[in-house]
Design a protein around this nucleic acid. Structure first.
Lengths: 209, 209
DNA sequence: TATATAAAATGACTAATAGTCACTAAATAT
DNA sequence: ATATTTAGTGACTATTAGTCATTTTATATA
């Protein structure tokens, strides 16, 4: 039935239009300064319609986060070198994440500000993308495994644990730079060099000796 | 003038009573589920009175955070050994922070959930406690300096930078455990051992070789 | 084509809640 | 005893997330 297909396509399109509007406003005015009315107006729809496509504000926010994850994943996949060692790909993945935070600061902030505790408010269908194969985190775990197999990464700690540590470490520094710039300025810490330093420190602790 | 002194004392007392009430409710129901009306009721005051003592909700939240910082600082100072090497005190400070997150989970969460971007909403008077001498972060910087002087800590990176890295790294893992337990469970990562692993990794990268 | 049914969209309405302010009450000074 | 200053009150406003009875539009049917 061709009509149903078109309708599905249009529904998806409308959904994406709404995310476009939300994204644009979030990035422009900051997450906390954008109301559902505001988004509805931008999307040229009534507020009620937003709730036909999203469970609520958090669900819409998470849809934006999901786009960020897709973007990040693209960058990671693009820079991944199948033939390289696990260690090298680890380094590369880190660089990809840093690039992402620089090239898509809005998305990065949106991801950092997504409250972990509001997962229940997110529609189940899109809820666990972070845990799906192909997500940045899952891919990182795979790379750590590869590194442990080729001997370039220490194997006395489980790949999941190592991956979570690496991810948390890098995220925390990027968050520091993105959200707490004034603190770093006050302490006269250079933003570029702190990334390099953190990178060396935590990667070093993860590679084989 | 004795009357003025008593009044000042009573004012401070009232202020502390309000923080007590807020703290209690925050810890019991979670930060996001407590309204100003609720706090006023708990403190047996009218809502308007809260605004005589605090600039707004964020300011009150920060007052709770400030108490947490004081508590953390106490623990850090208690465990500090003046005669020990910088490296040893670094290790000790990390342990103190971990202890704090375990013994005062409410305060720890409250600190983690305090939005860095809302500093402007905080009363100037209590605003920059994090940057005052004697705060955990400033004390950490001092310890790193000591370590660099006694040769136990690498000195090719500024103490401020190293301190920020260490602080961010440990905070991120503790935040992971506190706010994203389900993720760790799903990945079958043990909470206790991930702390140990992260500790080893990031401390190792900071000590002299 | 005209009519019935289903799907999509609307926006006025409710509920919750942060913050304000004109007023009252209590404490202190004269 | 009265005036003045300080502390406290709670009804009110403004904002905004989310709902739902109603309307509009699109599709199916006769």
């Amino acid at each position: 039935m061709g009509i149903q297909e078109r309708k599905d396509r249009e529904k998806l399109q409308r959904r994406n239009d709404i995310i476009d509007s939300a994204e644009q406003l979030f990035f422009k005015h900051g997450l906390g300064n954008v109301s559902m009315d505001h988004i509805a107006q931008e999307a040229e729809l009534s507020k009620g319609t937003l709730y036909l496509y999203f469970k609520g504000r958090e669900d819409l926010h998470y849809a934006v986060v999901n786009r960020g994850l897709d973007l990040l994943n693209e960058i990671i996949q693009r820079n991944h070198v199948r033939e390289a060692s696990g260690a090298d790909n680890l380094l590369q993945l880190g660089r990809s994440y840093i690039d992402f935070s620089r090239e898509h600061p809005g998305h990065f902030q949106s991801m950092m500000l997504f409250d972990a505790s509001s997962f229940e408010k997110v529609d189940k269908e899109q809820s666990l993308k972070i845990l799906e194969p192909g997500s940045p985190l899952m891919f990182l775990i795979e790379i750590v495994k590869t590194g442990q197999e080729d001997g370039s990464v220490r194997n006395d700690i489980s790949p999941e644990k190592l991956a979570m540590i690496l991810w948390s470490h890098l995220s925390s520094i990027l968050e520091l730079i993105t959200l707490r710039g004034p603190l770093l300025n006050y302490l006269e810490v250079d933003k570029g060099s702190i990334i390099d330093a953190q990178f060396e420190i935590s990667l070093n602790g993860v590679l084989s000796k």
